[in-house]
Design a protein around this nucleic acid. Sequence first.
DNA 1: ACTCCACAGGAATTGAGGGGTG
DNA 2: CACCCCTCAATTCCTGTGGAGT
Length: 407
Amino acid sequence: MGRFAQRGDVFADEDVLRDDYTPDELIERDEEMDDYEEALQPTVNGAQPRNIFVYGETGVGKTLATRMILDELAEDQDHFDDVHIEVVWINCKDHTSYQAAAHLVNKLRPDQKKKVSTSGHPRATIHRMLWEHIDDLEATHVLFVLDEVDSLGADDELLYQIPRASSNEKVNDTEVGLIGISNNFKFRENLSARVQSSLCEHEIHFKPYDATQLRAILTQRAEKAFVDSVLTDDVIPLTAAFAGQDTGSARHALDILYKAGSLARKEDSDVVAEGHVRRASEQVERGVIEEELRALPTQSHLLLYALTILSKSNETPARRTRIYEVYEAVADRIDADKKASRTIHNRLSQLSLKGFLKVTEQNEGLSGGKHYDYELDVKREIVEDILLDNSRLDEVMIDQTLDSYTR
DNA sequence: ACTCCACAGGAATTGAGGGGTG
DNA sequence: CACCCCTCAATTCCTGTGGAGT
């Protein structure tokens, strides 16, 4: 007998629960779709496109809605007179403003061999290439979709240039529009005033899903994803409730549902039941934390390690100087680079921002001044697990007591 | 009311590392 | 090869801050 065998499965088509699956119909987002339609109307009429800024938390349908509405637009424009709209879509994740521009150029270059490198060229060269390609499209309108624009950070040169391409005579005979999609609606505030006004001509806000909406979404997907009647009645409401309380993200809900299904499959269960959902929800939550922790750079791991040591000897919450002392000792111990205090300070704020550390502001006046107190905000065991299999900190060192690091 | 501790966090700079063109 | 461009962490330097202590 081999390890694998095909057997009865609760899933009919598990891909339907995946993040990149496109359902036939987008539900529970009627309002947003109407907004979208309105925002795109000028383009359809052949006028100058309004720039659109779409924001909302992850997993609330921004990308999907955009894809669907643009697909519809592409289909419908066959019947338009004198309007020819091209859409160029990129995901800005992990790109700088400069790299995003280079990727746009590459999107417009069908020839694989002539792709430009995403580094090395002067910025102006990349932009010039972009304008040339827009001209070559011979479209009346080009819409650039920048998904996850917030990862471009504070450098808004590209966002500044794109809407102005037509007016600055960079491109001829083509109107250029911009659709920015962002998880982070504070992103707008980081932009310079010159960009804010032009990027946000039309804003569309995607609200988190509530439990009722999630239930509808899950029902839609579950119909295709699971074999008929393997889900017990409370599975979908419970999944919706978990995800609704926590994030309001459809992705989150689908993750839980998928996980519940695979737990049931693993156990050779005929049905997916409430218990599977509860365990799935826990695992998903823990999985997210673990993944993020694992992805951190070594220096952050060292820092977390310092925090676990302090935590073990009940010295948390601790202030920055104390954490730095322990960090230095740890770094010495395993012969890692020792970074300056300001750097560690930066890392501390990063870790707090990501929710791994809890920060409390303290002010003890003359006897202590103003400072922050830090402590771990995730289970110590999880942190230790990650540190064990991801760095040079091995079992032995984890068990060291604080004393051996401070002598 | 004023001081002053112990930092927080912004600004500017550097330097190594990715790559380009001619 | 010489010279140039972009990126980003790290570092140095520095100004800002709020309340306990006086």
